[in-house]
Simulated scan of single mutants.
Amino acid sequence: MEIKRLSRRELIKYGGIALFGAAAGGMLTGCSQANFSNAVADGAESVSDGNGGSCAQIPSETAGPYPAHDDSAINVLRLNGIVRSDVRSSLNTGGYTGSSTATGVPLTLTLNLLDVNASCAPLAGYAIYLWHCDINGKYSMYSSGVTSETYLRGVQQTDSNGSVTFQTIFPGCYDGRMTHIHFEIYPSMAEAVDDSYIVRTSQLTFPLATSSSVYNNASGYSASKTNFNKISFATDNVFSDGTAYQMASIQSGNYSSGFVASLDVGIKV
Rank of each mutant, 00 (worst) to 15 (best):
G137T: 01
V164E: 11
E149S: 04
D42T: 00
G64I: 06
K230C: 05
G253A: 00
T108Y: 08
S202T: 01
F233Q: 13
G25W: 04
N216F: 01
M247Q: 14
T97A: 09
S140E: 00
D241F: 13
Y151P: 01
D49L: 06
Y126G: 08
N80R: 12
Q57P: 09
L204P: 10
R200D: 14
Q167F: 10
L152T: 00
Y197V: 00
G15K: 00
Q156M: 14
G104E: 10
S60V: 03
G125F: 00
G26N: 13
A24Y: 13
S60Q: 12
T158R: 04
M27A: 14
A127H: 10
T168W: 11
G50S: 03
V116A: 08
D264E: 11
T97Q: 04
V105N: 05
A73R: 04
K225Q: 11
E149Q: 04
V260D: 13
T97Y: 11
Y245Q: 13
G266E: 12
A209H: 14
A39K: 10
L208C: 08
L91F: 03
G145D: 12
Q251N: 15
D264P: 12
G172E: 03
N117F: 01
Q167R: 07
T108H: 11
H180K: 13
I185K: 03
I181N: 11
A63T: 12
E61Q: 13
E2K: 13
V105C: 09
G50P: 00
L111A: 02
Y245D: 15
Y151M: 13
T150E: 01
E61P: 01
N136W: 06
A121N: 05
E2H: 11
A192S: 08
Q33I: 03
S211T: 12
S196P: 04
I58P: 15
L263D: 15
R153P: 00
S224L: 00
S163V: 02
S257T: 13
N117V: 02
D70H: 05
N51K: 04
I82T: 07
N216R: 07
S188E: 09
S196F: 05
D194T: 08
F206V: 08
L113Y: 09
V265P: 05
D115M: 09
R200W: 04
G16I: 00
F239S: 14
T210D: 12
T147R: 02
S99A: 08
A102M: 07
G43Y: 04
A190V: 07
I169G: 12
S232V: 04
T110S: 11
I12D: 04
E184G: 10
I82E: 01
Y126W: 08
K13W: 04
T168I: 12
I181F: 08
I198W: 05
T243I: 06
Y221A: 01
M141L: 09
G15S: 03
A23Y: 14
T150P: 03
L28R: 10
Y129P: 01
R8V: 13
E149P: 00
I58E: 12
T101P: 04
